[in-house]
Nucleic acid binder design. Structure first.
Length: 313
DNA sequence: GCGTCCAGGTCTACC
DNA sequence: GGTAGACCTGGACGC
């Protein structure tokens, strides 16, 4: 599908702000889709905005971020305003990180991370189904296998969009996945039990579900509860997809956070058992900033491993 | 080469 | 409401 240029948005981020660190995280996480392109300070990416595939070209210009928006059809004014708002949230341009940095600098293991990732912001995903799909494919699998699963799923069912001389492949949308047979999906992309989760969840979303914006207007707890009504979505997956910053620890990240929170390694036999205690300690230590602490830590793991012997594998 | 374990969770049945 | 056990798959590991 070929898209035409629709509009240009210009954002003035609250400083400090680093565009490259924000859209291209050091840990390798992409802005919207694993198949977006990055070249000399410019990113080409895309996402589903409701039923409409959207392409974006974004770059930094001085203290501004310029985003060109591409679409196959014109959007009414109110939709355009919604898109502008969601893009500003996806770039985190309205967030003042200074109180967060003040907090990070108090911790002996975290203070240097501020220097390494200064100006990196975290934003919303633009599409709930894409975020949930990613989280479900991360369940109970080493990262390499998760990558194989999403590569196959996007190749088989993701939409290709072309704009500004680039072709980007999007995550599959919920209407496409809702029509698939879980058995076929499981066999084709080796998704295992996750195929049933994806198809049932897609059907629930097609039947009607709050948008990212509506979830953002809820309290973090209410948004998580709503997300957990979806089949296959537990606390971890809901936290991953929620527009509210969340502190979603899993069996892997608890091993990293245990030394940061308690100064010792997680229980070797059953690391999962420490998750509840770690969540309470993080809330006490960092309050509402704990979600961003998680993002910063996961994007500077090599430093933590080298300097503090934190287990990262 | 073969069997077992387990990984960036969640659901279900059972108590 | 709390808690085992099952769920896909494939790589790592021990023998």
């Amino acid at each position: 599908m070929t898209l035409s240029r629709l509009f240009q948005f210009r954002f003035k981020p609250v400083q400090p702000y680093n565009f490259e660190l924000t859209v291209k995280k050091p840990a390798g996480w992409s802005w919207f889709t694993p198949y977006e392109k990055w070249e000399r300070g410019t990113v080409w990416s895309g996402f589903w905005f409701g039923r409409v595939p959207i392409g974006v070209k974004a770059r930094s210009a001085g203290r501004s971020v310029i985003v060109d928006v591409y679409s196959a059809r014109k959007l009414p004014k109110d939709e355009l305003a919604r898109l502008e708002h969601q893009l500003s949230e996806s770039l985190g341009v309205n967030d003042d990180l200074r109180p967060f940095y003040k907090l990070m600098r108090k911790h002996r293991m975290l203070k240097d991370i501020v220097k390494h990732l200064y100006g990196m912001h975290e934003g919303w995903g633009m599409n709930i189904f894409s975020s949930l799909t990613l989280a479900i494919l991360l369940q109970m699998a080493p990262i390499k296998r998760s990558e194989e699963m999403w590569a196959c799923l996007i190749k088989a069912h993701g939409k290709k969009i072309s704009f500004d001389g680039q072709t980007i492949q999007l995550w599959p949308d919920e209407r496409t996945i809702a029509k698939q047979s879980p058995h076929t999906l499981a066999k084709r992309c080796k998704l295992g039990y996750r195929a049933k989760f994806l198809v049932k969840m897609a059907k629930q979303l097609v039947a009607g579900f709050p948008s990212v914006e509506e979830l953002a207007k809820m309290t973090p707890e209410a948004a998580n509860e709503k997300l957990m009504e979806l089949f296959g979505v537990g606390e971890y997956t809901a936290g991953f997809a929620s527009p509210h910053p969340s502190f979603s620890l899993d069996v892997w990240s608890i091993k990293i956070f245990y030394p940061i929170l308690f100064g010792k390694h997680a229980p070797a036999k059953d690391p999962r058992s420490g998750i509840k205690r770690a969540n309470l300690a993080a809330e006490k230590m960092w309050g509402d900033w704990r979600g961003l602490v998680l993002v910063y830590v996961l994007n500077d793991l090599k430093y933590l491993a080298d300097k503090f012997k934190v287990p990262i594998t």
